[in-house]
Design a protein around this nucleic acid. Structure first.
Lengths: 341, 341
DNA sequence: CTGAAAGCGCTTACAG
DNA sequence: CTGAAAGCGCTTACAG
């Protein structure tokens, strides 16, 4: 019992049997006599024996650990997804190592290799906003390590993926804006390299088209940051147009809030002059004034499903693997920012 | 190169040298000739060699992993602390395994043993609300594994701890309420077993005493949950008193928000009829209406310091260990909920 | 400057 | 029913 940690050898020595027998007794191997099992288990309990899972991992080439890479931990949506992953992982006997890329491509790469070095059994990933090159994940892929991308997915690799139906979510939000009488609907677009943002733009376009509204590129502005400040600036930019919008649909709730602040500052009313809708599972979109209409995403469910897809893949024969893309439904939550008296 | 993972043996075989030499070359051991080093490093790079840190961990009895146990991940304060821990840990070469107790004592115990089994080098812990027995942590302590408690600390063990100055924070908040003319200040008290809540109560009492206000136990109500709903109920309870309060200081911002909703529902005005102050680093206390005065906590800094204390302890000789309790300063943020016209 | 050997703690095919 | 041996991938004291 060196270093305070009891090992199988300690138990074997004390009972004057071999480590092999102890190992087998501990896992209730049918070969071992009931008496031996009893003696081993009692002593193990008495000494507070705990298997060294590092040794087990090395032996079995399996760590029962899942690596997660998210852009940020301090983020309602991502922490909710993590919580969902953790829930399923815990019940399936997996531990979870979490890294945050801080929206940095370089950090994402180094996180990936750190997790590989830790021999995680798989990776659950949501891309950083700045990731345009996927070589690091291609290497993971080529080593045969399961990956599941969630929300901010990578389309270049043949892996499981899970997203909400971003296009449909955006479509519903914009259709709703049209239904309350808006004719010039602007869109604050997220980073172009993120598929989810492309989809949201696509849903916006489709809704306009389907309802016979023209697509005006002056009304579509890019916001690569997605913060309140950047949304505020995009809002100001839109308000300066000769023919400003009567509604704004933003790619996320933070940006939407920034737009609202810009509208208020210009002395205009929400939703009477300009209606606003956002996108996300943002915890407190209900708290801002006026409360914000938003497309809610099932983050916890996404986490649970991502973990399940991973576990299914691990259980499966490699030959049988078929990459799947799960699409989760969003829910349009209508609030004051789009309800005209 | 089995299972797609390159090992030291693969490199040794290909170069026709021994694994020992490869190992040494890889870590730039002075004994090894420059030519050998060059050959090894080039081949390692070419084959995308990555040391198996599981094997290294087993060999060195050190995993370079920190276990974190928090009540919840989806929580602004805790996710901020985690982010701070991650920041320091990453730069010191540590990985972080995160578990959430979900405020369950049983889950906290099983998390603790799961982390021990993973042979984490240390534990950074914030207690579950329901933890009243510390045997699981006593066992960690007796095995000589470093622990740092943060925010929701354990006073029964001689470990490093880090908290904000809860008593002073509460004192400042209540003193501020007194300064705007409040005479009957109620307190929504958090779970009694949490030291931070005891301290907040203590600060409340001290402020009253120091300013010559009587302590009225009718004005102090317990809220063990700390949610908007539970705060709402406590608020209603206070409003029913024959002599209701003219201010409420709540142990957290969620409860404070619940109280505000109860006050509004009763047709009373904040802060004119009843002023409200909360406690926390709650991201959006600025967003609710009216905006909430609160005692802000430096969560990121707390995480960074907790990780630093752990790393210091690891570097130190065990004999030199002196348990420390760090006290971080809070900041009273005065907002509309306590500013009378 | 390099290698053979032992060992970290466990598991399991093989032998008895 | 039990044990000795080999091995997971690495490191390092010891020998040369």
């Amino acid at each position: 019992m060196k270093g305070g940690q009891v090992t199988i050898k300690d138990i074997a020595r004390e009972l004057d049997i071999s480590p092999s027998t102890v190992s087998r007794a501990l896992k209730d191997h049918p070969d071992i006599s009931p008496e031996t099992k009893k003696a081993v288990n009692e002593l193990a309990k008495k000494l507070h024996y705990q298997p060294n899972s590092i040794a087990q991992s090395l032996r079995k080439s399996k760590t029962n650990t899942i690596g997660i890479i998210v852009p940020e931990i301090v983020h309602f949506f991502f922490s909710t997804v993590i919580s969902g992953i953790e829930d399923v992982a815990y019940n399936a006997g997996y531990n979870v190592i979490i890294c945050q890329s801080n929206e940095s491509y370089e950090r994402e790469v180094s996180d990936t290799f750190a997790l590989l070095s830790h021999r995680v059994d798989g990776l659950l990933i949501s891309l950083s906003r700045n990731t345009k090159n996927f070589d690091h994940f291609r290497e993971v892929y080529e080593r045969g390590i399961p990956m599941v991308f969630f929300d901010r997915i990578c389309e270049e690799l043949d892996t499981h993926r899970i997203v909400v139906d971003d296009k449909e979510g955006a479509f519903k939000a914009v259709e709703h804006l049209i239904s309350i009488g808006c004719k010039r609907i602007a869109h604050i677009e997220g980073p172009r390299n993120l598929v989810i943002c492309q989809q949201r733009l696509e849903g916006y376009k489709q809704a306009l088209e389907q309802h016979g509204l023209p697509y005006d590129e002056d009304l579509v502005v890019i916001d690569n940051v997605g913060s309140r400040e950047s949304g505020f600036e995009r809002g100001q930019q839109l308000l300066k147009l000769d023919n400003p919008p009567d509604a704004v649909f933003a790619h996320n709730d933070m940006a939407a809030h920034g737009v609202m602040l810009a509208i208020k500052e210009a002395g205009l009313k929400i939703p009477e002059d300009i209606a606003v809708a956002g996108f996300s599972n943002w915890q407190f979109s209900s708290l801002i004034q006026p409360s914000l209409t938003t497309v809610a995403q099932p983050g916890f469910e996404m986490g649970r499903e991502a973990a399940r897809m991973f576990i299914d893949q691990v259980k499966q024969d490699k030959e049988d693997f078929q990459a799947q893309t799960q699409l989760l439904k969003t829910e349009l939550i209508i609030r004051e920012s789009t309800v005209r008296a």
